[in-house]
Design a protein around this nucleic acid. Structure first.
Lengths: 235, 235
DNA sequence: ACGTGGCGTATGGTATACCAAAAACCACGA
DNA sequence: TCGTGGTTTTTGGTATACCATACGCCACGT
């Protein structure tokens, strides 16, 4: 009985999550991550060094939470911290990018395999929307939007695999890939046959053809890998 | 000419890298990681809470480097830090373990695929040693050694794929899997057909049969996954 | 001109003090 | 006996001061 009272109070008030509970460390992490990403995309020849004290003043927080954020970025491979030397923004080498795409292919092809067994018909047919809006809008819009739409399609497949860990790992990979300068390369690749590939992949998934879905996804992504290998020169 | 002098000095002395440059943070990290792992393996019902101040006293360092080590462990999923509540050792759920094995299968099967293209004949035939010592010693030795030998075999395949990133990611997965209590399960699995599987895998690799090698590796690891799914109840 | 050695400065690493929130504790009253 | 309100303690978060080392600058001697 007395439950009703508290229940009412809870649902009625829905008190604002008041002060943003997020820690300074988390905020510093987000800000730094965004800054570094932007920097990597647009500032082709920027200075690639950071200073803890300078950043702590510009952010208005002490060095402590800032250092924790930087340590996390260091572990993720976005920056490299060298004792008594400085903090350097890491530029991925071409070899590293190729390896990331290889791992992406491995994980997404497994996700496709899982999707043929775990996803519902409705979920699988929902992929059509992504492929369709994708192929129609593309010509009119800026090419820059392609990568995002492309990645959304691949993320949708991965989600249908119902494996959280694969999703988490590929999210990190996508973030790194997105941060690469010369995203042009990915757009070039589309012109070739991405859209056709995507339609075939959806068809295989809907047919529950596990082996074919896995193979198509793998070959599609490995094709991108070879494309980058041939036509991209980084740094 | 004067180069000869410095060259001599360099090759002759080979001065030790003197004081261990490793930071307190790194040492704290290693110690904590080892402690937590041991704890997870042996102390089935131990207290799963840590205290920063207590640890800092017992390690003889201040809280700062300790916190950095803990933050790293938190990011790796070994502990969970809750603000103003405590630091809790994370027990992987069964579902999470199954997902880790799934990702392992995806990555190692891709590595096997790569190995058929990147590895030399000599490198591939070196796998025989691991399979052989493996199958002969097993009966006599403690079962506990199987997991390690097993993991070494799989790591060898992964290394032959020549993809550093796959190696790094699977190393982390193996660490987590190794830390699971009831390693017995993995030994049970071997009794079934691991050794036969391994021999077939090596044969496929030596024959440079890319598709078969990938499939055998994937199926082998997914079989382990199903075994764990059926016969293990964690927590 | 050029190498050399000392010394100051910059920078990440470490220690410590303080803060706020959450939990534990404890009296007190119905 | 129970719960209720406040107070103390615990605990992770944050700020700050200090430390040790790598690097740069500059005077000095050859």
């Amino acid at each position: 009985m007395e439950n009703r009272v508290t229940e009412l109070a809870d649902t009625q008030l829905q008190i604002t999550p008041i002060g943003e509970g997020i820690s300074l460390k988390a905020r510093a992490y987000d800000a730094l991550k965004a800054a570094i990403t932007n920097m990597n995309i647009y500032a082709h020849e920027a200075e690639l060094r950071l200073d803890e004290r300078d950043l702590s003043q510009r952010f208005g927080v002490s060095r402590t939470p800032l250092r924790e954020a930087l340590a996390q970025l260091d572990q993720e491979g976005l920056v490299k911290i060298v004792a008594r030397r400085g903090i350097f923004i890491v530029r991925k080498t071409k070899a590293e990018i190729l390896e990331m795409i290889t791992v992406w292919a491995a994980l997404e092809s497994m996700a496709a395999r899982l999707a043929t067994k775990e996803a519902s018909d409705a979920e699988l047919s929902s992929l059509h929307d992504l492929v369709d809006t994708f192929s129609t809008d593309v010509v009119a819009r800026q090419m820059g939007e392609y990568s995002d739409a492309n990645i959304r399609f691949h993320q949708a497949i991965i989600n249908l695999g119902k494996c959280q860990l694969i999703g988490d790992m590929t999210d990190k990979l996508f973030f790194h890939v997105r941060a690469i300068r010369q995203r042009t390369i990915f757009e070039q690749d589309r012109a070739k046959r991405s859209i056709v590939d995507h339609k075939e992949i959806v068809a295989a998934l809907e047919a529950r053809d596990t082996e074919r879905a896995e193979r198509l996804v793998r070959e599609h992504t490995l094709r991108l890998r070879d494309h980058v290998d041939r036509f991209v020169e980084i740094d």
